[in-house]
């Protein structure tokens, strides 16, 4: 991944800079080691919280070498790490000499109260973000709450550390603290307000709404008049805000781009009506507008230039990034051999069946398609059941030894497939996957 190490180094430098400044400006003090460690955890935790804004702001410079498939889960993990550090911060201070009144006392300074309020808020924020789906919270509602809670926590932690931190008397650390806060405010405003407003000034237009199966629709977008469509790699995705009728929700969601970048004038997304928002996708009309923020992701065969043989495994609507890859291979005559294992419930659920079967007769790419149905009709003569170890072993055959695997399925299916593929001798380094949701 080009340039990735420099980004990681810059991020680490940002996290560790407060510790370096602390050591340089206050080399020694009479406090205990445990107390000093508690302080360090506090400084580190604050720096990570500020870094969270940078990770979440969808900045091209930050995201490009990794893809949001890595930066967003990394943002989640760093949120957990920051929460653990900020739990240990008061515990170590108390153990190191401040005593238990720091934790349980009520007669404490107002800036300690700020920390006592911000820590539960942070824990709630992290817990809800990790368990959103199982708690039944809608994505849009969670996003709104996250956008309020995150900055509130950062502001409270800033005020707490500014007033409570003995090290914050040093001017270099004060400059860094104010600089980080200013950067956070700037990035948050840009991400949540300025960029959405800027993008909404030149929306894309929906020029076709096509029903693929009873539950799946393809929307075709054309760029604003006089503008070129954005450039993208096959398999990437876009953030989309549909501006439709008054009664239809205006929410931003991410959808895979299902078309090939070789088509210079349009792009498409193929969407299954399943969740609260996507259930309305069939009500989209030609002429509706769409605010587009794209492209993102690295789920593309172009990221694997040396992989001549590939195995694509799709579960249901997970075919969308893979059809984009296949269409691009077809349009450019890519010299690749691809085995596509496509799992669906019934024959009626198979999206792009005719197109896939038509592509299977070509030389470049050399495509073999195997449909697998979990609830087949009586007339079905192909593979049936779940993609288990026996099927993967039999269908993949020699591919297991050398091919690169690209998987796009629901999370439980991905976990099962990765485990089985590992058991069959496919190292994780040859498996690339994308969940339906980030």
């Amino acid at each position: 991944m080009p340039s990735a190490p420099s980004r990681i180094f810059a991020y680490l430098a940002l996290l560790l800079l407060p510790l370096v400044i602390m050591v340089v400006t206050h080399p020694f003090n009479p406090d205990t080691f445990i107390y000093n460690l508690g302080r360090c955890f506090g400084l580190l935790g604050f720096a990570i919280l500020m870094g969270q804004v940078i990770l979440a702001a969808r900045l091209r410079w930050v995201e490009k070498p990794f893809g949001l498939n890595i930066t967003f889960p990394f943002h989640r993990r760093m949120g957990v790490f920051a929460a653990l550090l900020l739990i240990m911060h008061p515990l170590f201070l108390a153990l190191g000499g401040a005593g238990w009144p720091l934790l349980i006392g009520l007669r404490i300074d107002w800036f300690i109260w700020l920390a006592k309020v911000s820590l539960p808020l942070l824990l709630i924020n992290v817990f809800v973000s990790l368990r959103r789906a199982s708690l039944g919270i809608k994505f849009e509602k969670w996003r709104q709450c996250h956008g309020l809670l995150g900055p509130t926590i950062i502001l409270l932690v800033f005020l707490h550390s500014w007033n409570a931190g003995a090290d914050l008397t040093a001017v270099p650390l004060q400059v860094l603290w104010v600089g980080l806060l200013a950067l956070g405010v700037l990035l948050f405003s840009y991400h949540r307000l300025i960029r959405p407003w800027w993008l909404s000034r030149s929306p894309y237009r929906i020029v076709e709404v096509r029903q693929e199966t009873p539950a799946v629709w393809t929307l075709r977008f054309s760029p604003p008049p006089g503008e070129k469509r954005f450039d993208f790699m096959p398999g990437q995705f876009q953030f989309l805000t549909l501006l439709r009728g008054k009664d239809l929700p205006v929410e931003e969601h991410h959808f895979t781009i299902s078309s090939s970048p070789a088509d210079p004038d349009f792009h498409t997304s193929t969407i299954k009506a399943s969740g609260d928002f996507t259930a309305t996708i069939g009500q989209t009309r030609v002429g509706d507008l769409a605010v587009v923020h794209a492209p993102f992701g690295r789920f593309s065969y172009l990221v694997h230039p040396n992989a001549r043989e590939l195995v694509f495994i799709a579960g249901g609507i997970g075919i969308t990034p893979l059809i984009s890859n296949l269409r691009h291979m077809r349009d450019t005559g890519a010299d690749r051999r691809v085995l596509l294992l496509f799992s669906n419930k019934s024959e009626a659920d198979i999206v792009f069946k005719e197109e896939l079967d038509g592509m299977a007769g070509r030389e470049k790419p050399h495509l073999q398609v195997v449909h697998i149905l979990t609830q087949p009709g009586s007339a079905w003569k192909g593979e049936t059941g779940r993609l288990d170890r026996e099927k993967l072993s039999r269908l993949c055959g020699a591919h297991l030894a050398h091919s690169t695997f690209l998987l796009c399925c629901p999370p439980p299916m991905i976990q099962s497939l990765v485990t089985i593929l590992n058991d069959l001798g496919v190292p994780i380094s040859r498996i690339s996957y994308e969940y339906f949701s980030l």
């Binding site: 990681i8 991020y11 370096v20 050591v23 000093n36 360090c40 990394f74 993990r77 994780i428 040859r430």
Partner: peptide, 30 residues
């Protein structure tokens, strides 16, 4: 591939941060 990379980066950042915090606390105390 992504999972492996994510784990490595997360491990590197967490480990480096904890080592740096320990080192900084040691330097200040002794």
């Amino acid at each position: 591939m992504e999972f492996l990379y994510l784990n490595r980066v997360t491990g590197l950042v967490i480990l480096s941060s904890l080592i740096a915090a320990l080192a900084a606390a040691l330097l200040r105390t002794y």
